[in-house]
Simulated assay, not measured.
Amino acid sequence: MASVAASLLEPLSASTKSAVIDAFWGPIPARLSRSCDDCQLEQFWEFYTKECEHALHDGGRHVFVRTHQDILDIVALLKKQRSRDEIRDFLRWKLTNVYPNEDELLDCSIDLAAGLLLMIDFGHLHYGFSGRLRLNWTKGPLKDCLERHFCEAPVLGHQGVKLQRVFNALNLQRIAGVDIIPTDNLADHLRLTDDDTKLYIFHHASVLKCQSASSILPADLAEETLRTLALLFPQTDTPTRKWLRRVIPMLSLDPQLLLCGHLKTDDRQIENFTYWHDRLVVLKQVFDEATPQNMSQWWHDRRNGVQWYTFWVAITVLGLTLLFGLIQSVEGAMQVYGTFYSGAK
């Protein structure tokens, strides 16, 4: 227990990480195919450390928690489906002093633990602006809040929407000009911003793979999110793999993005997506309506094979015409020069 009794601001030890993993998810699933000490959760630990440091800013005047054990105590109550009021009463009982901002201390501590467990932003950001979606959980068990947010029935129609193989993150960037922005907030996954020029991707595939049947997340949400990653980062697509290998170190992405598999034709049907259905419909519309703006985009845009070949044949013919015209002009100039030079003699 000594490891989890350490301060949230101290570097994470191997025993602390192991205790957090056991409390959050239980045994690491075999599909990560690595040991607990090296299970490709490095990006999660960076997130965990960053969130703890941010919560304890300003001398920790805004949260009650101080140790990893404090976090794990709240997580245990969250997983037992205790209501927010019950968790608040439990924490209030642990207070040893009277604080003028007691409610803020308790609520921010609950939101911190819930955010670390699920990688979802909760509550209001009291200091600053992040631009990230935040779930407003004020009462009842956390699971009820998650179901209200994620389990809304899709409202957008999908007639004619086809998720072809060409529809992936690499082509979204190089054809449609959509920048891929990694996010640590699951609620922001597949969200388009800045006039549809930026796409947020929840890249923590390893965390999604760690979710078990006892997860607080709605049923199959983690699995469907993994399928959206397999759709956008197909494991069998060579250009995507080469691109990912280059950007993973640059953007500190989860290496498990390379191992999300690929979707067969039946699996890529839009009807198979429920939680992310509407965001995929909007994203596909942005992709379909994108028109090339430069030569690079024209080269990579092979959504319409006939149009692509016609365009580049025309460019080739134009280039050859200009080249031959230039050659003829040079030859004509040389002939004129030769005639003038001979006459001068």
Rank of each mutant, 00 (worst) to 15 (best):
W93Y: 09
L8D: 04
I110G: 01
V286W: 08
Q297Y: 09
L105N: 00
I248C: 02
F273G: 00
N272M: 05
V166H: 11
L105E: 02
L190V: 10
E223F: 06
T238L: 14
C145V: 06
G128T: 07
V155G: 05
Q43A: 08
Q235E: 15
G123I: 02
W137P: 00
V247C: 11
R132A: 12
L199R: 12
H54I: 07
T265G: 00
T238I: 13
T138S: 10
I327F: 11
L170D: 02
I120S: 01
V4I: 13
L257G: 00
W312A: 04
V336S: 08
D266L: 07
L146Y: 07
C145G: 02
V247S: 10
P292W: 12
T197D: 07
F47I: 06
D184N: 15
C210Q: 08
L118E: 08
Q81F: 08
C145R: 08
I270M: 12
D107A: 08
V63D: 05
L221E: 03
L170Q: 11
N185S: 05
G128Q: 06
S296A: 14
D194V: 11
K162A: 12
F273M: 01
M1Y: 06
T265H: 06
L117P: 02
W137M: 07
A219G: 00
L186N: 04
V63A: 04
M250E: 15
R302V: 13
L253N: 02
Q173S: 15
D220L: 12
G140W: 00
K79Q: 15
T49S: 15
G319Y: 05
E51A: 15
A169L: 05
Q81R: 15
D89K: 01
L192I: 10
L326H: 10
A23E: 11
I175F: 04
K209S: 05
W312K: 03
S329W: 12
N171C: 08
V166C: 09
L208G: 08
Y337T: 05
F311T: 12
D73T: 09
G26R: 13
Y275M: 06
E224G: 03
V20R: 07
D220E: 14
L232M: 13
K209F: 08
T225N: 03
C52D: 00
C36A: 14
P234Y: 08
T183L: 08
V282R: 15
W243L: 06
L77I: 00
L253E: 05
S342L: 10
R82H: 14
R165I: 03
T228E: 04
E10F: 01
Q164D: 13
I120K: 05
F167A: 11
L208H: 04
R302E: 12
Y341F: 02
T49F: 02
T236E: 13
E51F: 03
G305H: 11
W312I: 03
L117G: 07
A113W: 04
F167R: 10
F150H: 07
L12R: 10
N136R: 14
L116P: 00
S296E: 14
L72I: 13
C39Q: 06
A5Y: 09
Y48M: 09
S130I: 00
D188Q: 07
K264I: 01
T238M: 08
A14I: 07
L133F: 01
D89I: 00
